[in-house]
Nucleic acid binder design. Sequence first.
DNA 1: CTGTTAGCGCATTCAC
DNA 2: GTGAATGCGCTAACAG
Lengths: 347, 347
Amino acid sequence: MATTMKDVARQAGVDVSTVSLAINNDPRIRRETRERILSIASDLGYRKNHLARGLRSGKSFTIGAVVGYTSSAFWSEVLAGAQSVLAEHDYHLLLDYAPSELRQEETQIEALKQKRVDGFLIAPSDDDPESPDNKSAVEHYRALEEEKIPFVFVDRFVPGLDADYVAADNFSAARTATRHLLRLGHKRVAYVYAPHRMNTAQRERLQGYQSVMKEARLEPIPWEALRPRNERSLEGLEAGRELLADKAGKGVTAILAATDSTAMGVLRALHDAEKKVPEEIALMGFGGASTAEYMHPPLSTVTLPMRALGEHAARILLDRIEGADGPPRHVLLPTQLTIRASCGAAR
Amino acid sequence: MATTMKDVARQAGVDVSTVSLAINNDPRIRRETRERILSIASDLGYRKNHLARGLRSGKSFTIGAVVGYTSSAFWSEVLAGAQSVLAEHDYHLLLDYAPSELRQEETQIEALKQKRVDGFLIAPSDDDPESPDNKSAVEHYRALEEEKIPFVFVDRFVPGLDADYVAADNFSAARTATRHLLRLGHKRVAYVYAPHRMNTAQRERLQGYQSVMKEARLEPIPWEALRPRNERSLEGLEAGRELLADKAGKGVTAILAATDSTAMGVLRALHDAEKKVPEEIALMGFGGASTAEYMHPPLSTVTLPMRALGEHAARILLDRIEGADGPPRHVLLPTQLTIRASCGAAR
DNA sequence: CTGTTAGCGCATTCAC
DNA sequence: GTGAATGCGCTAACAG
């Protein structure tokens, strides 16, 4: 059996409770006593048992992370950010990649509740307009509130639910990106996005784009990238092809894409159509994928603060767990325009 | 307070122990009794407490995942694979992105031990030849063996330590890729890799390449991609440039890269040098990055079975936790050649 | 400052 | 088949 506080206590000639206090740095314990106990503990190879501590104190020092794993590089970064601040406080992430069906997400959250996580970091499922369970989603999260389990949304949130969230400022980002293209002299700027993958983040990008176009009295050219027929086909590629073939694509000299992978697909469509990028058509992505730089030409993009997203979310969560009350916090993190060759000009 | 077995027991007019047996599907409990208890439990919103169960049974139903987060998309997939099989057995992953210094990895493993994880899924740190702590690494993992905490290496392993591991068959994969290039008629085939990021996986790729070249009585042209001077520079890009400028690059008609991102960098170097791919130089990556397909031309690559890696590792771990003894298992998973335009020909 | 006393929720002996 | 008793390792009152 592993050595316990009891062993340490016996060896040190003190009570277990004293050992407990010593190990938890309680100020009531004298320095020298603590040091003696700690040294004995270390000699004996004592290791605290978080399960016992958790049972007793009602805290597990774990956070359930319920996120999608599509666009997995993105989530890796977010989780790495969260993990790094949590680790400083002895917390860990209990991972739970959730497929985008709400039903699944629910049972997985239940499983994590059984593990007694102290809080949740959640990227709510995309709200597919074809089956809008949004109402049930709201109820679902409200249950968490009633059970007083803190949670914070990351990257996107659930409209109609006033909860903590941390997201990139997608609206401003889209505005900045669009304005950048307009400043370069473009008039017909299209926006390619996937309507079947809508969530609050995506919605705000679209709105940001539209708002700038309208303010400039230009016609917005939103272009829907449909679900590709065969599983592993390239969404952006098909969308780009169709846009170029359609009359809406006539005269378009710049394209902003809702995600980097969409942009990469569009880029291939442009290559295939022998359109020069950026000379004939300027292109810009959204996300900050590391591979964007490797494109030909290197892809300009809106870089999302992925690590910071996770870090902030973790901090809010820790606060809430410590009992911080107060109104929901809505943190919007700034993004950065990463200008490379594909959009045609330095900032 | 949350409802406990005690509450359920009182409500059902039975003892807690009966409830416990019922919930754990013990055959001693009669069907109807169990069903009655279960229904009451569900009515009362009973939720089992894994901390208590863990304290009692000595199992936490969690697995520590200690992996790097560079090449994060790769690890996302691996972890998603592991998670999916673990979830079926009520296990979860406790995440721990470890930077590649061994020292760090050690303290993080210690923290996870305190959380009483039932096993570890580990991607051992790269063995930087400049500071070969390999000996201490071995000891470090042996400690786990002595403590009888099961662990399995994923993707790479520690030479000199005969432990369970699951990896892609990098040696064969590199051989297949190299042979593919030779079959296309190439004689001077270079291999670009990063010596400062060596690990067993990388080493086997290099050896696979070399073995085929030697068998074909061709001169291997290994080319080292050095650590780029500025942090965020492109390793493969610089390496590609240097290779083209060097006399070793003379007459090279095909390049195999050790990773996809290296290949992407090389691709840019080729573009910059106005070399046509694949007409003048054929190119092939390694990894199966999702964005490889978006390259121009689409990048041929060796696709690694990322999800399967995680799935197998999880299964082995579960077996070991269940007490499976027996010699270390070394699982080598097959890879797939994904032929696209950059290498010049369909298979 | 340190020891005493009591559980946290559950699983596992044993009886019956 | 089911109930009673016991303790996993730890923390938190409350004494002293």
